[in-house]
Simulated scan of single mutants.
Amino acid sequence: MSRAEAAPAGATAVPASAAARRWGLSLLISEVTTTFRRWRTLALLGVLAAVPVLIGIAVKIETGDDGAHGGGGPAFISQVTNNGLFLVFTSLAATLPFFLPMAIGVIAGDSVAGEAGSGTLRYLLVAPAGRTRLLFAKYATTMAFCFAATLVVAVSALAVGALLFPLGEVTLISGTTIGFGEGLLRALAIAVVVALSLVGVAALGLFVSTLTNSGVAAMATTVGLLITVQILDQFPQLSAIQPYLFPHYWLSFADLLRDPVLWDQVLRNLGLQALYAAVFGSAAWARFTAKDITV
């Protein structure tokens, strides 16, 4: 008897590709849920949420009751005492060079290597989703963490800014004054740009994660590469290659606080991140699809 004859009347056969797609979606949901339930992930988000609190308290103590700011500091810090919304911009500027990329590097570096080290990777590979969908799920989960981490910093900064400082109209870098509502929209746009600025780090960490079976080694290597590249971006003698380093345009989000918005540096940053994502994402796919999983 054929398979079609054995099927109940009125039943429709489900194509294998459709079943694989459904499994791929289930796999993605499972990856995201598992990642955000880990204590390590929650600890990273907790540290990121604490940074705006520390910055806000430090600014409040330093300025005192008169609101006078007597020294330098991160970008936008001189405006924080006049408008708590600027604590969002200051916190993103303070966390983007190190804290946010380090957290992304930890999650991305452990994505594949951690599974291989614990022996669960081979069980995931027997599922009908296949290696390509599994790798995509890992990268999509890392990107979800990118947006979640950036949102945590922004929301924490907004809450602390509202508690410690006044809120109101926002004076942009160009001198134009906009309403608080439009200021919130610009803060949201900046948070999105900051999250997208980390797609290159996420792809790099994913590629490193496919090279080893040790999650700790992959995380350490990713963070080490991140620090090294940022150091290289500081030497004037290397100005010829610096525009091609993924952190070079990270702070270009400040141009979203101009009127009119200057898009040149912002678009260069997003284009550079897309290039890194394409190169290291392809390298991760080539490595992972040919990798011999023995553990």
Results as ranks from 00 to 15, higher is better:
Asn83Tyr: 09
Ser17Tyr: 00
Leu225Ala: 07
Ala113Cys: 01
Leu226Ser: 13
Gly10His: 05
Asn213Val: 05
Arg268Ile: 03
Gly71Asn: 06
Leu45Val: 02
Trp23Leu: 15
Gly105Cys: 12
Gln234Ile: 00
Val223Cys: 06
Leu188Phe: 14
Phe89Asp: 10
Val32Thr: 13
Gly117Thr: 08
Thr294Val: 15
Leu256Asn: 05
Val126Gln: 08
Ala75Leu: 14
Ala191Asn: 03
Met1His: 09
Val155Phe: 00
Glu182Gly: 04
Thr63Val: 13
Ser30Arg: 14
Ala157Ser: 10
Ala116Lys: 14
Met1Tyr: 00
Leu185Cys: 04
Ser30Ala: 12
Leu245Glu: 02
Leu85Glu: 04
Ala277Arg: 12
Ser2Glu: 14
Arg3Phe: 02
Val223Glu: 03
Gly117Lys: 08
Pro8Phe: 05
Val160Tyr: 01
Gly24Asn: 07
Leu85Phe: 14
Gln242Gly: 01
Ala16Cys: 02
Thr41His: 04
Arg133Val: 01
Val201Cys: 04
Gly24Ala: 15
Val208Cys: 07
Leu124Gly: 11
Lys138Ala: 13
Val59Leu: 15
Thr228Ser: 15
Thr90Lys: 10
Leu275Ile: 10
Phe99Pro: 11
Ala94Cys: 06
Asn83Cys: 09
Met1Asn: 09
Ile104Arg: 04
Pro8Tyr: 09
Leu225Arg: 04
Ser282Cys: 12
Leu45Phe: 01
Thr222Met: 06
Gly73Asp: 07
Ala43Lys: 00
Ala277Leu: 15
Ala274Gln: 11
Ala9Trp: 03
Leu96Pro: 02
Asp66Gly: 01
Gly130Phe: 01
Ala191Lys: 06
Gly73Ile: 02
Leu226Ala: 07
Leu184Asp: 00
Leu256Gly: 08
Leu184Lys: 10
Leu198His: 06
Glu5Val: 02
Leu232Met: 13
Gly130Leu: 03
Trp250Phe: 13
Thr210Phe: 02
Ser252Asn: 12
Thr212Arg: 12
Gly179Thr: 05
Leu28Thr: 07
Ala113Val: 01
Leu121Tyr: 02
Ala220Gly: 14
Leu87Arg: 08
Leu262Cys: 00
Val153Ala: 07
Tyr276Arg: 13
Val152Lys: 05
Ile77Tyr: 12
Asp110His: 04
Leu172Ser: 10
Thr221Arg: 05
Glu169Met: 04
Ala154Glu: 07
Thr150Lys: 07
Phe288Lys: 11
Trp285Asn: 04
Val170Met: 15
Val199Arg: 13
Pro15Met: 06
Ile104Asp: 03
Gln79Met: 08
Phe288Tyr: 03
Phe246Asp: 00
Phe145Val: 01
Phe99Leu: 15
Leu124Met: 11
Gly114Asn: 05
Ala217Ser: 14
Thr90Asn: 07
Leu96Glu: 13
Leu54Glu: 06
Gly183Gln: 06
Thr221Asp: 09
Ile173Asp: 11
Ile29Thr: 04
Leu25Ser: 13
Ala203Asn: 08
Gly161Met: 06
Gly117Ile: 00
Gln265Ile: 00
Arg122Trp: 03
Pro243Glu: 12
Pro15Asp: 09
Phe99Asp: 11
Phe147Lys: 06
Val194Ile: 04
Val106Ile: 15
Gly71Ala: 13
Thr150Ser: 14
Ser156Trp: 01
Ile107Met: 14
Ala108His: 09
Ala148Val: 15
Ala7Phe: 01
Ala148Thr: 15
Gly181Trp: 09
Leu196Asp: 05
Arg122Gln: 12
Ala13Trp: 06
Gln242Asp: 01
